[in-house]
Every structure is written in structure tokens, then in C-alpha cells.
């Protein structure tokens, strides 16, 4: 599967989730900085539980296979006891692929 086809599939999945899309857009804005769920929540206006669902999946409400971590769009950064998240190179390339469209 080519990278472009992969991106199209990811974008189709994103279109179905406002939460995942807002997280992606926020992490794109602060790239290459990482952020933690409470900060993402404050800046997007989406509650922390849903932010975690979008990032990692949550069996009941957010399909884990479509989570941003699972799709390789976001990566986890452990600093001490805190887990931060940042846009991966693939995530950045995904957003920037939209320049063409």
C-alpha cells in the first residue's frame, strides 16, 4: 500500500471523529512540542476522557484500531511520571499532504 493511499484511509477515519481531528490539529499547531491530555483538553475545549479516547482508544467509545497512536500519527513521550503526546513525522506528513489538495 502506498503512503498516499494510507493517508487517504486515515483521513477518511478522521472525518468520522471530531475528537481525533481536533487533537491532530492541535498537535500540528504546537509541533514539534509535545503536550499532555489536560493541556490538550484546555486548548481544544474537549474533556480529558475523550482526549484519551482519541489518543489511545477506549473500548466502549473510541475504536482502538483508529486511535491516533495506533495509526502512527501521534507518538508517546514519557517524561518522569507524565506521559506526553506529540505529532509524529508521519502525522506531520499527513497534514502537509493536504497542501496538494
Amino acid at each position: 500500500m502506498s503512503a498516499e493511499v494510507g493517508f487517504e484511509e486515515i483521513l477518511r477515519a478522521l472525518r468520522r471523529s471530531r475528537v481525533r481531528t481536533e487533537i491532530l490539529m492541535y498537535l500540528y499547531k504546537i509541533y514539534p512540542r509535545a503536550s499532555y491530555p489536560a493541556e490538550i483538553s484546555r486548548n481544544t475545549g474537549i474533556d480529558s476522557t475523550n482526549i484519551l479516547g482519541g489518543l489511545r482508544g477506549m473500548s466502549s467509545r473510541f475504536d482502538e484500531s483508529s486511535s491516533l497512536l495506533n495509526q502512527g500519527i501521534v507518538e508517546r513521550v514519557e517524561r518522569g511520571d507524565v506521559t506526553y503526546y506529540r505529532l509524529s513525522e508521519r502525522g506531520k506528513a499527513l497534514v502537509e499532504s493536504l497542501q496538494k489538495g
Binding site: 478522521l14 472525518r15 481531528t21 481536533e22 490539529m25 502537509e96 493536504l98 489538495g101
Partner: peptide, 8 residues
């Protein structure tokens, strides 16, 4: 639609 770039 989000996500978008400055060009979009």
C-alpha cells in the same frame, strides 16, 4: 475540513 494547512 480540519485538518488543514495555511495553503488550504
Amino acid at each position: 475540513w480540519k485538518p488543514f494547512t495555511v495553503k488550504n
